[in-house]
């Protein structure tokens, strides 16, 4: 096959556009979640999404649009649980995660078991992204840019030192809630690209790679976004060329970028010492 043949299909362009929009908001929001040690939040919320998606199948409505409010409500639940002094934050995430999967599996069984459509949500199916979903992704990408630029200094201060931000008059509770609820929405839409199993990697891996080389906060956001976007384009291209699952290829390329950066950094350090 001509390696550029795939670009003649219009659905490819729709997939690339949707994927890039998803890459933008997950990598930007992910940077804050990773630094605030909340990266597992993505994992828990994606597991809750299994429940949401299954309810969508059971009620024969749009799985993604049903998952949206379910996951957002769980995000609010997580905020409440983590404020409870009797439970560690990471345990709270584990509890919500377990609830999401257990309920999700039962509802999925009631809805007729594991079919191709459910598999699409588990492992992602960026090539089947609909116009409505691309539109929703565009809205989230724009909102994430607005949210981050409007609250940029507050978010940076809160991430660095929350007590300082509070004494400087920042309404940290409001901004934290906003960030987490918004992350919930981002995770649901990002399922389309890489699936429930891998969506947290889109939140965690690009920022982790960016943090290795950036020497300022803005550069971290930019690199994170660039890494994520490149892996979407390369991922879609190679998965199509090699006939492999696109979600897995996208994440592997993200990981490859991280490992290359870590390897190069390690080699440089060795040379400096030698």
């Amino acid at each position: 096959m001509n390696p550029f043949e795939l670009f003649s299909y219009s659905f490819i362009w729709q997939a690339i556009l949707g994927g890039l929009l998803i890459a933008i908001f997950t990598s930007l929001i992910g940077t804050f979640l990773v630094l605030k040690r909340l990266s597992l939040m993505g994992d828990s919320l994606s597991h809750v999404a299994l429940s949401g998606v299954s309810i969508g199948f059971l009620t024969k409505t749009s799985p993604l649009f049903v998952a949206l409010p379910v996951v957002i409500l769980s995000a609010l639940g997580i905020i409440k649980l983590t404020k409870n002094e009797k439970i560690y934050a990471d345990s709270a995430l584990g509890i919500i995660s377990a609830l999401g999967i257990a309920l999700g599996l039962i509802i999925a069984a009631l809805a007729g078991g594991f079919n191709v459509d459910l598999m699409g949500f588990l492992f992602g199916s960026i090539l089947t992204i609909s116009q409505a979903e691309v539109l929703l992704a565009a809205v989230l990408a724009v909102l994430s840019l607005i949210l981050i630029s409007y609250y940029y200094h507050e978010l940076v201060a809160m991430t660095f030192d929350e007590n300082f931000a509070k004494t400087a008059g920042v309404n940290t509770d409001k901004i934290n809630t906003l960030l987490i609820v918004f992350s919930a929405a981002c995770i649901v839409i990002a399922l389309k690209a890489v699936g429930i199993m891998l969506v947290s990697a889109l939140i965690i891996v690009p920022p982790s790679a960016a943090l290795q080389i950036a020497n300022s906060f803005k550069k971290t956001l930019i690199y994170s976004c660039l890494f994520s976007c490149s892996s979407i384009i390369l991922g879609i291209y190679f998965s199509f060329l090699l006939n492999l699952p696109s979600g897995a290829v996208i994440i592997l390329i993200n990981l490859l970028i991280l490992f290359i950066i870590l390897g190069v950094k390690y080699a440089f350090k060795k040379r400096k010492i030698a």
Binding site: A157, F164, A168, N215, F217
Partner: peptide, 25 residues
Amino acid sequence: YLEQKITPPRLMPLTAFEVVKMGLL
């Protein structure tokens, strides 16, 4: 306010200058 001990994220990509600027928030 100067806190007794702060523990910023280990990988926080913020220069000393940017930390000082934060005080104007």
